[in-house]
Each structure stands twice: as C-alpha cells, then as structure tokens.
Amino acid sequence: MNSAAPTNSPAMLMQEVQVGSLRPAGPPVLSGVNWSVASGEFWVVAGLAQTGKTDLLMLAGGLVPPLTGSYRLFGRDLRELGEAGLAERLQVAFVPDHGQMFSQLTIAENIALPLRYQRNLDAEEAVREILGLLEMLELLPFAGAWPASLSRDWLKRAALARALVLRPRVLLCDHPLGGLGIRHRRWWLQFLDQLWHGHEYFGGTPMTVVVTTAELAPWQHAGRRFALLRDGQFLPLGAWSEVIQSADPTLGELLTQAPQPTL
C-alpha cells in the first residue's frame, strides 16, 4: 500500500454524473458516474478508444460541468465555484494527451505561462521560479527551444512541467504513456510514482494522481486503484488483484497489450 495514505475527505466526488463530449459537442459519453477520489490516491482509468476517457478528465479538471448529477471538487460543487473558486480549480492540473504546447512560445515560456498569468510575474522572475522544475524534469537543454522542434516524448514532459508549475494537489494525465519511447515510459512511471508518494520538490506532500490509459499492464501496482470505461459506464474495479481476476473481455483486451516497463 502507498505510504501516502489517503485522507478521508474526497478530493473529487462525482454522484450520478452524466459526462458530455467536449469536442465535438454531442450526446453524453458516460452516464451514472459515481466516483470518489480521496486525497493521495492513484487512479488508473482504462478504456478502449472513444470511450470518454478524455471527456471524463476534462470534467474532473473542472473544464466542463456535468450534464446531470453533482460533482464536488474539494468539497465544493463545481457549478458554485465560478471565478471565485479559481484557487480550487488550480489545485487540479491537467496534462493533455499530445502536450498541446503553444507554438508561438518557447518551452520555458510555455511552462512559465500559468505562473506568470496567475501571479503577474514578468518573464525573468518566472524563469527563475521554474529553473528547479526544468532541471528536475531534464528539460533545461530544451528551455529555449520551440515546441515544433521537439519530439513527442519531450513535449509531453514539458506539458507535465507546465501542469506542475502551480504546485497542484491533483494531477490528471491523459494517456501519459501514449506514443512514448521505452526510456520515457519508464521515466513517467517512476516520476508519477514519486509524485504520488510525495516528491521532495513539492515538500514531500503526496499528490493525488489520475491517469487514463488504453493498456493496463504498465500500471500494475498493489496500491493503485483501477476503473474501466465501457459502454458509456464508469465501472470501478478496485485494486490490481481484482483487475487480474476479472473475466471482463474488455479488461482482457486492455491487459493483453505488448509487454511494457513496469515498476
């Protein structure tokens, strides 16, 4: 079990939530989602393509409200948060699937942007603030590079740095291992684990981590919790031991991927 034991108050609580599709707008992609994520938990949400993994994360990040049902972020209803609840929303960081760095900003400028905007810092002040983060994520050599000149491996890592720059309590990663080389996959698995247990850069405070994936094998770990998205439903599975005992054919499909690095 994770040394960072979850506290009682859920960081995210969804009750009978209906998740709409963000792009393109359309009918609900998930219905009846009941999901409680306690602080300090590590959740792996698995599903085949087009099952609503990204939409669920977008909702979890407070980007879109639920179509129906209630979603409470740190105990406050998402609909009531508004602009006054920005501080709560910024406690949840999102790492998109493709990195989505802004092409007209350098990697360092991209990473510093949320910090500069939220704290009204000029460029030099912000760069000083992010140096440690760049070093920790091995991004210093690419600080002045344009996103177009970087490989997907490094773009995703830069997106992770941008998500971490405001020191969030919850980290949502959309397909963090998707399209990465073997070395980078291993790095991500180790680093997310360190964040979950409490990275010294963040004062040793355990971070709540939620990842989506289309392959379960790399995420096997006794302390992690798993859920499956299938047929428009959110199905909590429990721990890894319950995942491997399940006879669900979709799970079988998600488990029989090519061997990947694990921890």
């Binding site: 792009r23 990040g61 920005l86 493709h98 802004f102 949320p114 905007y117 998500a163």
Partner: peptide, 21 residues
C-alpha cells in the same frame, strides 16, 4: 488552429481566460 488542436482548453485548465489572453 489553436482551437482545433485543443490549445484553448489547455488555457482553461491553467485558469487562463481564453478571451482575455
């Protein structure tokens, strides 16, 4: 292009109002 590539949503995740920025 920014909209199609999902950059606008990313701005919102960082608490940056896309209309303002």
């Amino acid at each position: 292009t920014a909209r199609a590539l999902g950059e606008v949503e990313v701005l919102e995740t960082m608490g940056i109002d896309p209309v303002h920025y």
